[in-house]
Simulated assay, not measured.
Amino acid sequence: MTIEKSPSLAEVKLSYRTEQSPDTFPQVSSPDEAVAVLRQVWDNDHIQLKEEFVVLLLNNSKRCIGWSKISSGGGTATIVDPSAIYQVALLANATSIIVAHNHPSGNLDASKSDQKLTDRIKSSGDMLGITLEDHIILTADNYSSFRAKGIL
């Protein structure tokens, strides 16, 4: 019996390439350093308009090797699927991540849903061997760190 190769089967390939040496990427080992990187990549026209969720991808030396916007929502919420976060983390071969979202209202307090989401992201990462370093809440002129507050 001969089995023929199916031409309709799609091959999946993953790749990550950068032209820069990882030594040139910013080191992110504190909330202040994370916020400095986040302010560079965040669209300031949206920070007071709509909630968005971003992930910073870190290598073993805590260098930021990339970032990705995971979701963009409305004025009070955005939908975040942990699998989307870890899809890009795995693609970039990240060993740890920092997640962040903004509060257009300017309120720096983490809601119960923010805390539940953080717990889901952390437990998903634990299963994959990718550490959740921090969850940052950004406002136009300030920030709050889950790690610094002892929430994470």
Rank of each mutant, 00 (worst) to 15 (best):
M1A: 15
M1F: 15
T2C: 04
T2W: 06
I3A: 15
P7Q: 09
P7E: 05
P7R: 01
L9Q: 05
A10W: 04
E11K: 15
E11A: 13
V12K: 07
K13A: 14
L14G: 06
L14W: 00
S15F: 11
Y16W: 04
R17G: 12
R17Y: 09
T18A: 07
P22E: 06
D23C: 11
T24Y: 05
T24I: 10
F25K: 11
F25Q: 12
P26S: 04
P26V: 00
P26G: 01
P26A: 06
Q27L: 11
V28Y: 00
V28K: 01
S29T: 12
S29K: 12
V35L: 06
V35C: 03
L38G: 05
R39L: 09
R39Y: 13
Q40T: 09
Q40N: 05
V41D: 05
D43E: 12
N44P: 00
H46I: 02
I47D: 14
Q48I: 12
Q48W: 01
Q48R: 14
E51A: 12
E51S: 13
L57M: 13
L57C: 07
L58P: 01
L58H: 03
N59Y: 07
N59V: 08
N59H: 09
N59I: 11
N59G: 09
K62V: 00
K62F: 10
K62N: 12
K62L: 07
I65M: 00
I65L: 02
I65S: 00
G66W: 03
W67G: 02
S68P: 03
K69S: 02
K69D: 03
K69W: 02
S72N: 07
S72F: 11
G74C: 09
G75W: 11
A77Y: 15
T78A: 15
I79H: 15
V80M: 07
D81V: 07
A84I: 08
I85Y: 04
Y86I: 04
Y86H: 00
Q87K: 13
A92R: 06
T95C: 09
I98W: 02
V99S: 03
A100P: 08
H101F: 10
S105L: 13
G106I: 14
G106S: 12
G106D: 10
G106A: 13
N107W: 01
L108E: 14
D109I: 08
K112V: 11
D114K: 09
Q115K: 15
Q115H: 08
L117K: 01
L117I: 00
R120W: 01
K122T: 09
S123V: 11
S124L: 01
G125R: 02
G125Y: 03
M127R: 07
L128W: 02
G129S: 04
I130H: 04
L132K: 04
D134E: 10
H135D: 07
I136F: 05
I136K: 06
I137E: 12
I137P: 05
L138R: 09
T139E: 10
A140P: 03
A140W: 12
A140Q: 15
N142T: 13
Y143E: 10
Y143W: 12
S144M: 14
S144G: 07
S144P: 02
S144L: 09
S145L: 04
F146N: 01
R147P: 00
A148E: 14
A148N: 08
K149D: 11
G150D: 10
I151E: 05
L152S: 03
